[in-house]
Simulated scan of single mutants.
Amino acid sequence: MRKKQLIGKKPAYFQGQLLLADDFIDEQKYHMNELARHSLNLHGWGILRGLEVTRGSDTSINVGSGFAIDARGREIPINQPEVLDLSAFAPSSLLQITLSYETEQPSKERRRIECYGVVAASTGIEESAVVLATVQLDQAGKLTAESISTTNRRHLRTVLSPGSVTASALDPSLRKGWLRLPFRPTTIPQDQAGGAPPPFRIGSTEARSHKDYNGSPNTNGAGGTMAFPLAPGVTHLHRLRIAGQENEKKLSVALFRGGWDAVNKKHLGGRDNPMSKLLDEEIARGAYDRTYEVEDGELDPECSTLSIDIRSTGYIRVSLVAVELSYWD
């Protein structure tokens, strides 16, 4: 079974055919429409480069050279900078600076269709025009340093079909970065062997040891664990960073890889599991800002989890815990 849809028409020629003006016009229209369809569907529309709008004087703006595609897919190159005089507009006018495509039909004296790129300032936006900037005149009809806004400036962004660029094709700088978090730990269970340190006192920007705990001065520091949220596609842990302003005695930091073994249906992890513990470090007293390399930081993108365990034997403040992760390695 087959179904056909008409997607276009183009002139057909044969030997000895009498060609009229309409035949040549149809030929031109066919190629113009094909180019416009290509531009809109494969590239989108807007400013490709240049066309910056800057203040020229109290009553004028400068528009730089550049290239754009309008909303109908027509290419508009502006090869020379232009100056627009705004003195004719009323005070406090809100003006749109636009670029549009315009043609002038031929005459007996000029037997060509002339195509123009039109840079304009107006209080409205012409259909299909590309917005370059917005200009707000003051109460005296003048331009100030804050008059020109580019928030509604339309840039051309290439249209990509779903799946046309896979994650592995992204630049490495887009596939690797730091996940930065304030330390928000949960309390270590009291039934853990050897007992558990007191919990951290959690503030809005950092975690600290309690000065007093259960009605007595706290001489046992603090301890807690926290999980890192892993975004879809994370496959590798590279480094851990931890920083804080105070560490009265000694600080221990352990980083764990956990999760689930979907094949054998069992938990992956455990404090004493050598495959689970990725880091186990101690930091001496004083302010600290340490970054540790992780040698075996491979993570399963579907089932791996990541958590940190921080314990101190004296007063401590923790401002930052961060992990450097990469995606789709």
Rank of each mutant, 00 (worst) to 15 (best):
T158A: 08
V294R: 00
E248D: 10
Q139K: 06
R72P: 01
S107E: 02
G195F: 00
I76R: 00
L19T: 04
D26Y: 14
S319C: 12
R175P: 03
G244L: 06
P197M: 03
A243L: 14
P189W: 04
S168N: 14
V323L: 02
V53S: 07
H238T: 07
S252L: 10
F183G: 00
S326M: 04
N218W: 05
G73K: 06
P162M: 03
G73W: 01
S39R: 15
P199T: 01
V131R: 14
G215C: 03
K3C: 11
L181K: 09
Q28H: 12
D191S: 13
S149I: 07
I316Y: 04
L325E: 05
R257A: 05
D296K: 14
V53F: 03
E298Y: 14
P232Q: 13
L320C: 05
T123L: 09
D22P: 00
I283Q: 02
K265C: 07
P274S: 03
K249P: 06
S92L: 15
G244V: 07
G177W: 06
P185Q: 02
S57I: 07
A196L: 05
V323C: 11
L278V: 01
G258H: 08
L19E: 04
D212K: 10
G195Q: 03
L84A: 04
A254P: 11
D280F: 09
A12C: 11
A207D: 01
Y327F: 15
Q17E: 14
V294W: 00
D191Y: 12
T134H: 10
Y30G: 04
S168A: 15
S122V: 14
K211F: 08
S319K: 10
R49T: 15
L320K: 09
E295V: 13
G270R: 07
A36N: 09
A284C: 06
A243R: 14
L230N: 01
L156I: 00
R241C: 11
S204R: 12
S92H: 12
L251C: 01
I242A: 00
I97R: 00
K4Y: 13
S147M: 08
Y288D: 04
S60A: 08
E293P: 07
D261M: 07
G286A: 02
D191Q: 09
L18E: 14
S87T: 10
E126L: 15
V263T: 13
G223N: 06
R153M: 10
E52P: 10
D300T: 07
T98M: 13
G215S: 03
L20T: 14
P301I: 04
L99P: 09
W178R: 02
G258W: 12
A71C: 05
H43G: 13
K3H: 11
Q136L: 12
L170T: 08
D85V: 01
P11C: 05
S60C: 06
V130A: 05
L174H: 08
Q245N: 11
N218P: 08
G286R: 04
M226F: 06
G194Q: 05
T186G: 15
P77V: 02
D309T: 05
E127F: 06
Y101L: 11
L174P: 05
R74L: 13
G44M: 11
R74H: 07
G215P: 00
T186I: 15
D26T: 10
